[in-house]
Protein backbone atom coordinates (compact mmCIF):
# COMPACT_ATOMS: atom_id res chain seq x y z
CA UNK A 1 0.00 0.00 0.00
CA UNK A 2 2.76 2.35 1.00
CA UNK A 3 4.66 1.46 -2.14
CA UNK A 4 1.67 2.32 -4.26
CA UNK A 5 1.27 5.65 -2.56
CA UNK A 6 4.93 6.39 -3.10
CA UNK A 7 4.53 5.45 -6.74
CA UNK A 8 1.67 7.86 -7.16
CA UNK A 9 3.67 10.55 -5.45
CA UNK A 10 6.55 10.04 -7.82
CA UNK A 11 4.63 9.83 -11.02
CA UNK A 12 2.58 12.90 -10.38
CA UNK A 13 5.70 15.00 -10.48
CA UNK A 14 6.89 13.50 -13.75
CA UNK A 15 3.57 13.53 -15.52
CA UNK A 16 4.56 15.82 -18.36
CA UNK A 17 7.10 15.22 -21.10
CA UNK A 18 10.57 15.92 -19.86
CA UNK A 19 12.13 19.29 -19.50
CA UNK A 20 14.38 20.61 -22.26
CA UNK A 21 17.07 22.01 -19.97
CA UNK A 22 19.74 20.00 -18.23
CA UNK A 23 21.60 21.76 -15.44
CA UNK A 24 24.94 20.21 -14.73
CA UNK A 25 27.99 21.39 -12.83
CA UNK A 26 30.36 22.83 -15.43
CA UNK A 27 33.59 21.06 -14.51
CA UNK A 28 36.82 22.15 -16.18
CA UNK A 29 38.42 19.78 -18.64
CA UNK A 30 41.84 18.19 -18.36
CA UNK A 31 43.61 21.23 -19.80
CA UNK A 32 42.13 23.46 -17.15
CA UNK A 33 42.94 21.01 -14.36
CA UNK A 34 46.42 20.61 -15.80
CA UNK A 35 46.99 24.35 -15.88
CA UNK A 36 45.92 24.86 -12.28
CA UNK A 37 47.87 21.93 -10.90
CA UNK A 38 51.00 22.67 -12.88
CA UNK A 39 50.97 26.23 -11.55
CA UNK A 40 50.60 24.99 -7.99
CA UNK A 41 52.92 21.98 -8.04
CA UNK A 42 55.56 23.25 -10.42
CA UNK A 43 57.46 21.88 -13.42
CA UNK A 44 58.17 18.55 -11.67
CA UNK A 45 54.47 17.82 -11.73
CA UNK A 46 54.49 17.50 -15.51
CA UNK A 47 55.48 13.85 -15.42
CA UNK A 48 52.75 12.97 -12.96
CA UNK A 49 50.15 14.93 -14.90
CA UNK A 50 51.25 13.27 -18.12
CA UNK A 51 50.54 9.87 -16.63
CA UNK A 52 47.63 10.40 -14.31
CA UNK A 53 45.62 13.19 -15.90
CA UNK A 54 46.24 13.81 -19.58
CA UNK A 55 45.38 10.33 -20.91
CA UNK A 56 41.95 10.54 -19.27
CA UNK A 57 40.10 12.85 -21.60
CA UNK A 58 37.22 10.40 -21.32
CA UNK A 59 36.61 11.40 -17.71
CA UNK A 60 37.77 14.99 -17.77
CA UNK A 61 37.05 16.12 -21.26
CA UNK A 62 39.54 18.07 -23.35
CA UNK A 63 39.78 17.30 -27.07
CA UNK A 64 43.22 16.68 -28.56
CA UNK A 65 44.75 18.20 -31.68
CA UNK A 66 47.24 15.99 -33.49
CA UNK A 67 48.43 18.87 -35.68
CA UNK A 68 49.78 20.65 -32.61
CA UNK A 69 52.17 17.81 -31.97
CA UNK A 70 55.54 18.23 -33.59
CA UNK A 71 57.92 15.29 -33.51
CA UNK A 72 61.37 15.49 -34.97
CA UNK A 73 63.85 12.66 -34.89
CA UNK A 74 66.74 14.99 -34.25
CA UNK A 75 65.22 17.90 -32.42
CA UNK A 76 62.72 16.34 -30.07
CA UNK A 77 59.08 17.10 -29.59
CA UNK A 78 56.69 19.87 -28.74
CA UNK A 79 52.98 20.30 -28.28
CA UNK A 80 52.66 16.85 -26.71
CA UNK A 81 50.15 18.26 -24.24
CA UNK A 82 47.69 18.03 -27.09
CA UNK A 83 48.55 14.49 -28.10
CA UNK A 84 45.67 12.14 -28.76
CA UNK A 85 46.53 9.70 -25.99
CA UNK A 86 43.73 7.31 -26.76
CA UNK A 87 43.69 7.65 -30.48
CA UNK A 88 41.22 9.16 -32.85
CA UNK A 89 38.12 9.48 -30.65
CA UNK A 90 39.95 11.94 -28.38
CA UNK A 91 39.39 14.46 -31.14
CA UNK A 92 35.85 14.66 -29.87
CA UNK A 93 36.26 14.45 -26.10
CA UNK A 94 33.86 16.90 -24.52
CA UNK A 95 34.90 20.51 -23.95
CA UNK A 96 33.48 20.47 -20.43
CA UNK A 97 32.62 17.56 -18.19
CA UNK A 98 30.45 16.52 -15.27
CA UNK A 99 31.24 14.95 -11.92
CA UNK A 100 31.37 11.19 -12.09
CA UNK A 101 32.65 8.28 -10.08
CA UNK A 102 35.40 7.77 -12.62
CA UNK A 103 36.59 11.38 -12.50
CA UNK A 104 36.56 11.35 -8.71
CA UNK A 105 38.56 8.13 -8.61
CA UNK A 106 41.13 9.50 -11.00
CA UNK A 107 41.45 12.81 -9.11
CA UNK A 108 42.05 10.89 -5.90
CA UNK A 109 44.81 9.00 -7.60
CA UNK A 110 46.33 12.14 -9.09
CA UNK A 111 46.15 14.23 -5.94
CA UNK A 112 47.71 11.46 -3.90
CA UNK A 113 50.65 11.31 -6.28
CA UNK A 114 51.12 15.10 -6.37
CA UNK A 115 51.06 15.53 -2.63
CA UNK A 116 53.20 12.51 -1.89
CA UNK A 117 55.96 13.51 -4.25
CA UNK A 118 58.56 15.54 -2.32
CA UNK A 119 59.47 17.84 -5.15
CA UNK A 120 55.98 18.81 -6.15
CA UNK A 121 54.81 19.28 -2.59
CA UNK A 122 57.81 21.42 -1.80
CA UNK A 123 57.17 23.62 -4.78
CA UNK A 124 53.56 24.11 -3.78
CA UNK A 125 54.63 25.19 -0.31
CA UNK A 126 56.73 28.04 -1.67
CA UNK A 127 53.73 30.34 -1.31
CA UNK A 128 54.21 30.07 2.45
CA UNK A 129 57.73 31.43 2.40
CA UNK A 130 56.92 34.88 3.70
CA UNK A 131 54.04 33.88 5.89
CA UNK A 132 54.67 33.60 9.60
CA UNK A 133 51.53 32.56 11.41
CA UNK A 134 50.29 29.00 11.06
CA UNK A 135 46.70 30.08 10.48
CA UNK A 136 47.82 32.51 7.80
CA UNK A 137 49.76 29.72 6.15
CA UNK A 138 46.63 27.65 5.98
CA UNK A 139 44.82 30.57 4.40
CA UNK A 140 47.64 31.25 1.91
CA UNK A 141 47.79 27.65 0.83
CA UNK A 142 44.04 27.67 0.46
CA UNK A 143 44.43 30.61 -1.90
CA UNK A 144 46.53 28.51 -4.27
CA UNK A 145 43.41 26.60 -5.09
CA UNK A 146 40.78 29.20 -4.24
CA UNK A 147 42.27 32.62 -4.91
CA UNK A 148 38.92 34.35 -4.95
CA UNK A 149 37.66 33.75 -1.41
CA UNK A 150 38.80 33.03 2.12
CA UNK A 151 38.47 30.46 4.83
CA UNK A 152 36.75 31.70 7.92
CA UNK A 153 38.40 31.44 11.33
CA UNK A 154 36.20 28.59 12.40
CA UNK A 155 36.95 26.73 9.18
CA UNK A 156 40.67 27.13 9.75
CA UNK A 157 40.32 25.88 13.28
CA UNK A 158 38.37 22.92 12.09
CA UNK A 159 41.14 22.05 9.68
CA UNK A 160 43.78 22.34 12.38
CA UNK A 161 41.77 20.18 14.70
CA UNK A 162 41.02 17.43 12.20
CA UNK A 163 44.21 16.94 10.28
CA UNK A 164 47.08 14.89 11.55
CA UNK A 165 49.88 17.17 12.73
CA UNK A 166 52.58 14.86 11.49
CA UNK A 167 51.68 14.96 7.80
CA UNK A 168 49.71 18.14 7.93
CA UNK A 169 50.75 19.81 4.70
CA UNK A 170 50.73 16.63 2.69
CA UNK A 171 47.22 15.82 3.80
CA UNK A 172 45.98 19.37 3.47
CA UNK A 173 47.40 19.57 -0.03
CA UNK A 174 45.79 16.30 -1.02
CA UNK A 175 42.38 17.30 0.32
CA UNK A 176 42.47 20.70 -1.30
CA UNK A 177 43.43 19.06 -4.57
CA UNK A 178 40.57 16.59 -4.29
CA UNK A 179 37.94 19.18 -3.45
CA UNK A 180 35.72 19.72 -6.46
CA UNK A 181 34.82 23.39 -6.24
CA UNK A 182 38.08 24.69 -7.71
CA UNK A 183 37.67 22.31 -10.65
CA UNK A 184 34.80 24.45 -11.84
CA UNK A 185 36.48 27.42 -13.53
Amino acid sequence: MIKIIIMIFIFSSSAISANSLMFQPRMGNKYYVNSVLENIYGPESKIILQKALLPYSDFFGGPCDPYEVVLSKKKGSSGTLYKCFNGMPDLRSHMISQPSTLRTMQMKNLCQKLSQDQKTLKFSLKVLNNVKEFKDKIQSYYHSFYPWDNLSNSEIENIIKTLNKKYFWKTYSELLCQSERWQIP
Binding site: I16, S17, N19, S20, L21, M22, F23, Q24, M95, I96
Partner: peptide, 19 residues
Protein backbone atom coordinates in the same frame (compact mmCIF):
# COMPACT_ATOMS: atom_id res chain seq x y z
CA UNK B 1 25.89 25.97 -23.22
CA UNK B 2 29.67 26.20 -23.22
CA UNK B 3 29.86 29.14 -20.85
CA UNK B 4 27.21 28.03 -18.39
CA UNK B 5 27.07 24.25 -18.63
CA UNK B 6 23.29 24.43 -19.10
CA UNK B 7 22.46 21.96 -21.84
CA UNK B 8 19.52 22.94 -24.02
CA UNK B 9 17.63 20.45 -26.14
CA UNK B 10 16.38 22.87 -28.75
CA UNK B 11 13.96 20.36 -30.26
CA UNK B 12 12.32 19.86 -26.89
CA UNK B 13 12.39 23.55 -26.06
CA UNK B 14 10.47 24.40 -29.21
CA UNK B 15 8.08 21.48 -28.83
CA UNK B 16 7.24 22.40 -25.28
CA UNK B 17 6.70 26.07 -26.00
CA UNK B 18 3.13 26.01 -24.75
CA UNK B 19 4.11 24.47 -21.43
Amino acid sequence: EYFTGIKINLNQLLKRKKI
